[in-house]
Amino acid sequence: MTGQDNPESDPFATVLGAEVDLSRLRLRLLAEAERDGLLDVVYRTVDAPVGRLLLAATRRGLVRVAYEVEGHDTVLATLAERISPRLLKAGSQLDAVAGQLDDYFSRVRSRFDVDLDLRLASRFRLTVLEHLREIPYGGTASYAAVAALAGSPRAVRAVGTACATNPLPVVVPCHRVVRSDGGIGRYVGGDDAKRTLLRLEGAI
């Protein structure tokens, strides 16, 4: 090892140590990846009264909404594993969804008009998610009622699991499923988030 191997003393330290701004190159990469069909998953976050939400979409539609308590990095790692590691921070791809969420939290929108990719739910859980969309804004339904709607009246616990593992909370309204005894029940985003959403919708 000679002194010349020491990067500290190499001639680049002064010039190429300068800050690198990749924002323009990142935009170009996103555009070229989209053109070539390589943008498998894109994501962004939105700030909401229930904390910061992570939004992720595939070419089919919105695939994941995640609360901060779920750990956004963990959620992204899972998406890379289960869907595709070709996962990049979005440019404008998710602006429309983010706008609808803003409207929802400002009480100017009561339903979401976005394409959904429900590939992260399967079988009975998927059936439950499809029926959750029938519970109207401002309303609630009991776990037992949802089980009946889904065609398996005795699968009350499985409805609870389907809600707890809902990949698209807020947009697919599992927060409208409450306990028959009047309690609001558990929620993937935490009990406070559930209460916030139900109050926002005027359901409690």
């Binding site: 994501y43 890379a80 590691p85």
Partner: peptide, 20 residues
């Protein structure tokens, strides 16, 4: 364990690759 999101690769190695 699968691969990390590509975003992490861009973030971590983007500046190095540009210098190269």
């Amino acid at each position: 364990m699968g691969r990390e999101p590509f975003e992490v690769v861009v973030e971590r190695y983007g500046p190095m690759v540009l210098r190269v």
